[in-house]
């Protein structure tokens, strides 16, 4: 498992946020569509219009709340799991890996 669970969770919730945002957009377009219908005189669209608007605000709210939570997670983890901004990650440990690998080979040969 290359990534620990915590990270997986975070990624999944970020994906969910993305989908929420998308559906917000969809609801917006639906709302505008229903307004248009209303303007034409199609009165019975009123309830639909309400629904669409409500779902727009609903999904927007959910997305916002989730994003806020994510940002808070980021904040909490900067010192521990995440590096601070201006430090570059270095690929250390590769020499150990190679050494280990060669010792294994040696062992294999010697046996």
């Amino acid at each position: 498992m290359p990534q620990p669970e915590f990270i997986q969770e975070r990624l999944e919730s970020l994906n969910a946020v993305d989908n929420q945002l998308l559906s917000t957009l969809l609801h917006a377009s639906q709302a505008v569509g229903t307004i248009e219908e209303l303007k034409r005189g199609n009165e019975n669209m009123k309830s639909q219009f309400e629904n669409h608007i409500r779902s727009f605000y609903g999904s927007l709210e959910e997305a916002t709340v989730a994003l806020r939570r994510e940002i808070r997670h980021l904040d909490e983890n900067v010192g521990t799991r995440l590096l601070p901004i201006n430090v570059n990650k270095k690929a250390v440990g590769q020499d150990n890996e190679k050494m280990r690998e060669q010792f294994e080979h040696l062992e294999h040969e010697a046996s």
């Binding site: 990270i7 990624l11 970020l14 946020v17 945002l21 994003l67 995440l82 590096l83």
Partner: peptide
């Protein structure tokens, strides 16, 4: 907002402390 989620994603994946 989508860009924001992406930047958060990048932060998680790219700057983890081993």
């Amino acid at each position: 907002l989508l860009v924001m989620t992406r930047s958060i994603r990048e932060k998680w994946l790219l700057t983890q402390i081993p």
